[in-house]
Design a protein around this nucleic acid. Structure first.
Lengths: 248, 248
DNA sequence: GCTATATTTTGATTTAGATCAAGAGATTTC
DNA sequence: GAAATCTCTTGATCTAAATCAAAATATAGC
């Protein structure tokens, strides 16, 4: 938490150049109110591979992801892993918790976060009533995404799952909010997560993920640059496949 | 929405004998404030089999389930179904929606609901600040449940899924909040949903569900009274199986 | 740059659960 | 209360994806 004197500087440094400013919950706070936000939070940087939220640990803080990507996952006693999601710029982390966190969050590359203790969020909501609606919205959209994931894990084929994943990776910040339609030209995406992460996200094995990538490549739906970058050559086709409208 | 004159009577009729009073979001409203709640909501009864929320329809209302059970599901264009959950006494429905509902809700038996237009909830939160936290809590616990369901659908075996389902059915109101432990004696549960509903909930086929019920029966873990009532003979064993601690 | 290690791809085989196909109970209808 | 209709169970077979097993890349260390 920053102290009074340098607050204005801190705001300029933190929020002024924060690329998450316009997509995170912070977008309901006016520029002139940013000092309150900065005063209630602290900036955290996490190196690649480090966990910054641990499943089962007491949940004291929320986080806004301000740079990099993270994977959120949960483990069974025997080591089976389910990746719950990949967090990206602006994502609000920590809603899925009661007294303790329901998932572990691990930085995929280097990650920048703003940490908000629960009590700070309470005070901020008190002071900025619009924040309340924004948080509800965040929870709602998270729940809607979760429902889509239940459909994916419960009812989709391996091809549909991978297509869904690729389309989802293409969506959010990268497309600036516009929908993915047939007209779209090639779209190149970074894949900062490993094949194992993708498999654990899609409820598949790494081999099935790799094979399905191979099929998509043969079918001219994608090209791959190394393991951590794909180009979607036919985003519309992939989108239809993801939704079970088209089989090939 | 009730009009002034008979409000006190309406409160006595609606909330006075409502079994959801103590478990739903209403439990943060004091008795003397109930008239405001009643004034902002309307009581709805839905016959068995009727849908009262439709996937894709504009989301105007929240619902509190005040009696009966409902299934919440979503469909793919080709008819594949995923049951997102079974709602029961006190559940708050409609959080998983943006502009439109993300799921369809269908009454399993006859269902009683209190309908709260979004605008009413806004007014109530304004007037009863404690309600805000209660709603956040509702969203959080829903998200935690969802994560458990992702693990189930992504990583659990058919046996583990059915065990999870049975344990979950045993948990909430029926156990009055206490955890399921090895010491527990037999526990008889109603199963108001069909085998197809269970299958669509667990990401399995009806045949696999039926066969797995058969196995559990042979293994002395459960007995079945007709298709719509089970007795858990070994709740602790089932709980361990659900969590992947025990295979048989 | 070369070796060592980890990750990813590809191939062969197995298997859990799906699909196909009857029966056996329930429940509803008249 | 018998016929008709559903729902559920059980059995036989099939298959999508898992598992087992190398080979091929990629990455890191020295």
């Amino acid at each position: 938490m920053e102290t009074g004197r340098s607050l204005v500087d801190a705001v300029r440094e933190r929020c002024g150049r924060c690329s998450g400013r316009s997509v995170s919950i912070c977008n309901v706070i006016d520029d002139e109110d940013l000092p309150a936000l900065v005063a209630e939070s602290s900036r955290v940087t996490v190196p690649a591979g480090r966990c910054f939220i641990r499943e089962g640990a007491p949940a004291h803080d929320f986080y806004v992801l301000a740079g990099g990507r993270a994977k959120l996952f949960s483990l069974m006693p025997d080591g089976r892993r389910q990746v719950m999601g990949f967090a990206e710029l602006g994502d609000f982390l920590g809603l899925a918790s009661s007294d303790t966190y329901a998932f572990t969050a691990e930085a995929l590359g280097d990650v920048t976060l703003c940490r908000f203790p629960h009590s700070s969020i309470d005070r901020l909501v008190e002071r900025f009533p619009r924040l309340r609606g924004r948080l509800q919205q965040e929870a709602s959209s998270e729940l809607v995404k979760m429902q889509a994931r239940l459909m994916l894990l419960g009812r989709k084929t391996a091809r549909e799952r991978l297509a869904s994943f690729l389309v989802e990776q293409a969506s959010p910040c990268r497309l600036h909010g516009q929908e993915l339609r047939d007209g779209h030209g090639p779209l190149t995406l970074p894949l900062p997560m490993s094949r194992t992460d993708i498999a654990d996200y899609l409820g598949l094995t790494i081999e099935t993920v790799s094979r399905t990538f191979g099929l998509f490549r043969k079918e001219g739906l994608i090209t791959v640059q190394g393991a951590s970058s794909v180009t979607l050559l036919a985003p519309g086709t992939l989108s239809d496949m993801a939704n079970g409208i088209r089989k090939d």
